[in-house]
Write a protein that binds this DNA or RNA. Structure first.
Lengths: 96, 96
DNA sequence: GACTTTGTTATCATTTATGATAACACTTAC
DNA sequence: GTAAGTGTTATCATAAATGATAACAAAGTC
């Protein structure tokens, strides 16, 4: 293989448009990984958490699912976090 | 005055339901203060930012307004931040 | 005082997230 | 292998955020 996947990624990320999309997706991915982590750390299944939030497990799955194309409301994330014993902290980092 | 405002607040915040509502409102308030701050630091008016985001100044005002009862989408906040040169960082803090 | 700039508020249309239900896939324990 | 537990996916109805327009308010400029 002439061009490795890694090289391709590196090159692609030099394209500003690609990078921007990458950042957006990766932060969405990170968020969902974090959601799953705090739920599991708190020892809840999706169904148990759904009950705490007065909703259904399918909705929790959608929220946590990486493939999901939704951008959740801030309040949804806050309530999810609170239900499993966490608090949301939001910071704005100057892009350098 | 027998009961000072401060005492009232302190007492009220011992009521879990009141505290929960207080936290929610105060974090929403903080968020909006931060939004306004980063926009001003970047030197934009609401109208200028609106143009960057392909929307209207009234919508920016609604987003920034403390009295607003909306809970914005995560993507809305992310795009706002990015447009004024900031990146969003989200952390989940264990409630102790 | 009139004028410009900036932000606010109300309203309506449109888009999108969320709620609910059901069927399915996967794992694990029996 | 089958039954229970857990998570996924598709779909539809409902609620809520966002987009757009217009009129207004406040503050500063001349």
């Amino acid at each position: 293989m002439r061009t490795s996947l890694k090289d391709f990624k590196k090159k692609a990320l030099q394209n500003p448009e690609v990078k921007s999309e990458y950042d957006r997706l990766s932060s969405a991915y990170e968020l969902r990984k974090q959601l799953i982590k705090i739920r599991k750390d708190a020892g809840f299944t999706q169904e148990e958490l759904a009950e705490l939030l007065h909703t259904k497990k399918s909705n929790i799955s959608r929220l946590e699912n990486v493939n999901s194309k939704i951008s959740p409301k801030l309040s949804t994330i806050e309530e999810y976090a609170r239900a499993v014993g966490y608090k949301l902290e939001i910071n704005f980092i100057l892009q350098s």
